[in-house]
Design a protein around this nucleic acid. Sequence first.
DNA 1: CGATTCTTTGAAAACAGTCAATCTGTGTGG
DNA 2: CCACACAGATTGACTGTTTTCAAAGAATCG
Lengths: 192, 192
Amino acid sequence: MFDVFERYISAKAILTDQDLCLIRSLSVERKVAKREFVLREGEIARYIFFITRGMLRLLRTDDKGNEYILRFATENNWLSDRESYITGNPSNAYIDAIEDSQVLVWDKQDFHFLLKEIPALKQLMKELVGRSQIANQNRVFTTISGSAEEKYFRFIEKYPDTFNRVPLHMIASYIGVSRETLSRIRRHSVNK
Amino acid sequence: MFDVFERYISAKAILTDQDLCLIRSLSVERKVAKREFVLREGEIARYIFFITRGMLRLLRTDDKGNEYILRFATENNWLSDRESYITGNPSNAYIDAIEDSQVLVWDKQDFHFLLKEIPALKQLMKELVGRSQIANQNRVFTTISGSAEEKYFRFIEKYPDTFNRVPLHMIASYIGVSRETLSRIRRHSVNK
DNA sequence: CGATTCTTTGAAAACAGTCAATCTGTGTGG
DNA sequence: CCACACAGATTGACTGTTTTCAAAGAATCG
């Protein structure tokens, strides 16, 4: 399981064997079954996850109990509820697995220690934060512009892999339309 | 003009007089008239702005020419098109002034130098990036959940100052509804 | 004042959500 | 291995919301 991470990190940052050892020594390998939660609303996000296999989602609910997916995260991606993780406040989000998954987990304190000790890791995380900023900004734009249909096709185009792996009602929940609407969009555009 | 920045930065980071001097020496003071652009689509965002007075907006347009406001930025806020600034690619956004404004401008290279020289500044920027992540994530959620009316009221609640300073059609453009719809929402809820 | 920007309104049409029912495929326990 | 439960997808009918277009009414600024 760690080997997936090792390949990932070696491609993204220049680390010594020692660094890698240190990172590994503070990591915990964990399996997450489909539909299992690793974070619930009200809990504090004390951990950061790296997905070596499978897929997890970050979601919130409104007062009516509707789910809104904020992020799909697949292999070779990091995941946590940034808000709770950064602020230390109780989370207003959930994280659960969409597929049977395998993740590496670091405690926040430990990870913080790693960042301090390993500049290359720090640098990598900084780059990733930058990218997530960009992605979020683009998502805001896509979300406020265009119709449900446009959002659907933009999703397929942007995340073909995710599209092929998740049920349609989750895509609906990601782009912010009802599953019925999504179903009809698909029917009306079989020819496209 | 610089004194506004000085008060801001002194409250947020511990800097020596030397640091401050250095920061100042690389900054340029600039006035931006209402409706004046400081970044256009296709240009590369080579500068980072700090607003000492007035208000600017970051916006994008779709192929039909509709405007979508991604951010309002007022006094004591930093602004740039992160995507273009980080990647160096041509921007797909515009930045212009909503009010006659005053800004401090740093060249990207110079600012990078400052970050290297002044750890406290680097730390501050890091914190701000974290906050913007949180804000963006929350915005995505608010945007995909809830009706136009809810979005409108949440906007007022969250940004009362901005609300009082910008024309309604811009708020419509920020929350992603037509100005007519916003107008009607307001009429139907005069009593609320 | 005249021009421009901003806001509102009405009417029609397009769009999207809700509710209830049905259909499909999958997987699990007996 | 089958039956049944369950998750997922679709459909129809209806309702409600939002957009669009066209027009006109305020407000603001030079």
